[in-house]
């Protein structure tokens, strides 16, 4: 007899739970990176499935750019509180004050600098493993990354020198000062995430669903107007029905025009969409064909 109702979502879920339990069992001081975005909300549910009825054997950590959508931060705080789990927030502002991050100007995208604050936070708490919600389908460089991705003491990833990863036997060992990034949802796609949100009835920030928003047409995309993004001379502000496919730095995260008001409608839209998640919504990944790879080598998640 076998389990005929075992779907691809069940298979992915079981794999992710298995990965999280390996981290808990083998790493001395792990953390789960949690931003309040949809992928990390899926990660929280997986952690519940992996460890309840007990508490998580690790804290949640958010590296805050302070260039956020307020809805995302509200969801972040609410979910952490509802679950009764410990949330550590470290801000890019701290790094700016320390002088380890130097910005050109206030409205510059802060995504690239997250790696600095992340490495400082890892050092502060002595984390030896950080779990993150990155997926291999997001970007070409990620497609080649292992589930347990080893980093040297500068937090750097060497794509040519990765540990081979066989079966479901993970090598979690690190020397002092080094650490591992773990991606339990490596094998999930954007579609899987939405199907899971729908199946599990997960609460996600409202800006993932269609809403009216003031936007500016800029560089081939639409930019949300915010305190950091204001129309320049000649630009006009229009109101459109939009939703976000990812939520990152508010200065470079673009919404897509969409009428989809719930997960089921987004699933239908995702099934027919012709543009990748990052291609649609992240200005900072479009600078070159290799931009993500360069950032990863520098310790970006």
């Amino acid at each position: 007899m076998s389990n005929h109702n075992f779907t691809h979502l069940d298979a992915l879920e079981s794999e992710s739970i298995h990965i999280m339990r390996e981290v808990a069992a083998e790493c001395k001081n792990p953390a789960l990176l949690f931003s309040g975005g949809k992928d990390s909300i899926v990660m929280l549910r997986l952690a519940e499935k992996a460890f309840r009825p007990a508490k998580f054997p690790f804290p949640l950590v958010h590296i805050d750019t302070e260039h956020n959508f307020p809805e995302v931060i509200a969801t972040r705080d609410k979910l952490a509180a509802d679950l009764g789990e410990r949330l550590i927030v470290r801000s890019l502002e701290d790094s700016i004050k320390k002088g380890t991050v130097v910005l050109k100007n206030e409205t510059q995208s802060r995504n690239v600098f997250q790696s600095v604050t992340l490495l400082e936070t890892i050092a502060e708490f002595g984390f030896d493993a950080c779990m993150g919600g990155a997926r291999r389908d997001e970007e070409k460089a990620r497609a080649k990354e292992r589930i347990f991705s080893f980093r040297d003491d500068f937090g750097q990833w060497d794509p040519k020198n990765q540990r081979p990863e066989l079966w479901d036997i993970y090598n979690t060992r690190v020397h002092a000062g080094e650490n591992i990034r773990v991606f339990p949802i490596s094998n999930w796609t954007e579609m899987d995430i939405w199907q899971y949100i729908e199946r599990e009835k997960l609460e996600i920030p409202s800006i993932y669903y269609a809403h009216e928003r003031e936007v500016i047409q800029r560089a081939g995309g639409i930019m949300p107007v915010s305190h950091l993004v204001q129309p320049q001379a000649g630009e006009i502000v229009v109101t459109k029905t939009v939703r976000f496919r990812t939520v990152g730095d508010i200065t470079c995260t673009c919404p897509v025009e969409s009428p989809a008001r719930n997960a089921a409608e987004i699933i239908i839209e995702t099934a027919t969409t012709r543009i990748t998640e990052r291609g649609a919504t992240r200005m900072d990944d479009q600078t070159s064909d290799a931009s993500m790879e360069l950032r990863k080598k520098e310790g970006y998640f």
Binding site: D137, A141, K144, P159, T189, A290
Partner: peptide, 23 residues
């Protein structure tokens, strides 16, 4: 589409395992 890493793009070869997803 599958030859992802920069070095590969430069040398035009596949140097590691790349994972792709479709449904």
């Amino acid at each position: 589409l599958t030859d992802g890493l920069q070095a590969e793009r430069e040398q035009g070869i596949t140097i590691d395992v790349a994972y792709r997803y479709f449904a």
